[in-house]
Structures are given as C-alpha cells and as structure tokens.
C-alpha cells in the first residue's frame, strides 16, 4: 500500500473559528435550491388559499394597522399615504423576522437529518433566507402595485434613482436576520428556555422598530438609542429610497450597514465553531 501524503480532507478534534468552508457551498447548489423548493412547496400543502397567504398575510396586517394606528390612535405617517407606509414597514419587518425565526431553530428542527448525514450545515439557514427572499419579492411586487395606484392619484412622488438601491436594503435586511439567527441557533440548541423568551423579545423588537410609525418620532434624549437598532436605519432607508425623502442621521445608516456585516461574520463563525459539537447535545 503506497503511502501518499495528498489527502483531500481531514477530521480532527480542534475547533475552528475561522474555517468557514464557504467554498464548499457552490458544490451543493443543487441541494440548496432543493431545500428552498421544499420550503416553498411544503409550507402551503393542504391549505385552501395556498401561496396566496404570502400576499394575504401582509395585506391583512396592513389593514389592521390602518384601522388601529391610522384611524383610532392616529400615529403620524410623515405625510406618506398610510397604506403604503404600513405595507413598507410590514414587509421589511416580516422579512427580517421570518429570516430570524426560520434560522434560529436550525439545529433543533434538523437534528434528525444532522444526526445522519453530513453536508455544509450553513445550507439550511441559507435556504431559509432564500425562500423568504422569494416571498419578499412577491410582496414587493404587491407593494409596487399599490405604490403605482397612489402615484396615479398623485399622492406619492415618481420613482427616483433611489429605487436602484432598494435591492441592497432588502439584501441587508435578510443578511441581518441570517446573522442574528445563526448566533441564536447555537444558543437555542443548548438552552431550551430561550424558546419562550425569544418570542417575547422579537415582539418587543418590533415595537422598537419603525414599522407603524416614522423613524422621525425617535428623537429626543433617548431617540438615538433606538437608532442604534440596525432595523431602524434599514426600514428607514427603504422608505427614504422609495418615497424620495431627505436623509438625516446619515451616520446611523453607515453604522447599521457595518453592524450587519459584523453580526453576520460573528454568526457564521459561531455557527461553524459549534455546528458539529451541538449535535451531541440536541
């Protein structure tokens, strides 16, 4: 038996913080797309309205906000027609929160598969974000339809060059949800109590983000504090580019953009560091 020293892979007990193996993902693109497809196909099986829920859910929420915050409580929408204002907040927030809650239970929900077969574990959270991205695109189409109606009525300005930056904002929101979800996925596997508290924290987080109120309300002594929540500049950026608003607090936008990348890098490192060892626990 000739001894050769050209090994293709190695398994050892060390932990690697920075061995991300992202290069392995393209080889598994077939599996990635299949997982996205599974997510989209399986979710609406045996429902009457099927994929229409993708549109129905934000529309119903939008109408609810319109009744509560538009007519009863009367929260300002900063001169933007309330319906498109709410819808923009809702689809941004939902995209983030669906990415987050879809990825933060990665290890718990996939323990049966992870215990039997190896493939890059990152594919699973990645597929969740991509499937949510598809839903987001459908919802964006609805949003622009509504926008068009208001434009014809002369209630909103014409689209500007800013629209070209919208995909970047959407991408950033998804990456942020992914990053936070990756960090949490390791923790939810180790500490089951997190299940309950996270639902609560996620709801609080929504109220702290400008979903049904304009970010300009976040001023005053502690306002800056809420601007540190990356979701505030991200949702605000969506509206700024969409409705051709003027930008103040430019610094916060750059900070949010950087924070997303840092959280994502931390999330990937933490996830990769624990992706195998967590399996012995779940």
């Amino acid at each position: 038996m000739a001894e050769i020293e050209e090994w293709e892979w190695e398994i050892d007990p060390r932990y690697h913080w920075f061995k991300w193996e992202l290069g392995a993902i393209p080889q598994y693109k077939d599996l990635l797309f299949r997982l996205v497809r599974r997510d989209l196909l399986a979710n609406y099986q045996q429902t009457i309205l099927g994929p229409f829920w993708i549109l129905l859910q934000p529309v119903l929420t939008m109408l609810l906000y319109w009744v509560i915050f538009g007519t009863i409580v009367k929260v300002s929408t900063n001169g933007i027609p309330p319906l498109v204002f709410y819808l923009s907040g809702i689809i941004c927030w939902n995209f983030f929160s669906d990415c987050l809650s879809g990825t933060m239970y990665t290890f718990i929900h996939n323990s049966a598969v992870f215990g039997k077969v190896w493939f890059p574990r990152l594919l699973v959270p990645l597929s969740v974000v991509l499937a949510q991205g598809v839903r987001m695109l459908v919802q964006l189409a609805l949003f622009f339809l509504l926008y068009g109606i208001f434009y014809v009525r002369g209630d909103v300005p014409a689209s500007g060059i800013g629209w070209l930056l919208l995909p970047v904002v959407v991408l950033w929101i998804g990456l942020f949800g992914l990053g936070v979800g990756l960090l949490l996925s390791v923790l939810t596997a180790r500490y089951r109590d997190l299940d309950y508290s996270l639902q609560f924290i996620l709801r609080l987080w929504m109220f702290a983000s400008p979903v049904f109120y304009p970010a300009q309300l976040l001023s005053g002594k502690y306002g800056f504090f809420l601007w540190l929540n990356p979701m505030t500049p991200l949702i605000e950026a969506f509206r700024v580019f969409c409705f051709r608003r003027e930008v103040d607090h430019v610094g916060y936008f750059w900070a949010a953009g950087g924070a997303v990348l840092v959280v994502l890098a931390m999330g990937i490192a933490f996830f990769k560091r624990h992706e195998v060892s967590v399996n012995d626990i779940v």
């Binding site: 050209e6 090994w7 293709e8 892979w9 190695e10 398994i11 050892d12 007990p13 599974r38 196909l41 399986a42 099986q45 045996q46 049966a112 598969v113 992870f114 215990g115 039997k116 077969v117 190896w118 195998v276 060892s277 399996n279 012995d280």
Partner: peptide
C-alpha cells in the same frame, strides 16, 4: 463528520456518502 472526535485525526480522499439510515430528510408532504 456527524460528530467530532475528542482525540486523534482522520485523513482521507474522495467523496463520502454515509447511509446511517434510509430516507434521511424525506419530507412527508
């Protein structure tokens, strides 16, 4: 590569497929 060794190392060549059960990842729906 489903669980990690505490000590030692394994080196190898070639693509591995592991069949620790049949029907891994089958989705009911």
């Amino acid at each position: 590569r489903i669980t990690q060794p505490t000590q030692g190392r394994i080196r190898g060549r070639g693509r591995i497929a592991s069949l620790l059960e049949v029907g891994t990842g089958f989705h009911q729906e």
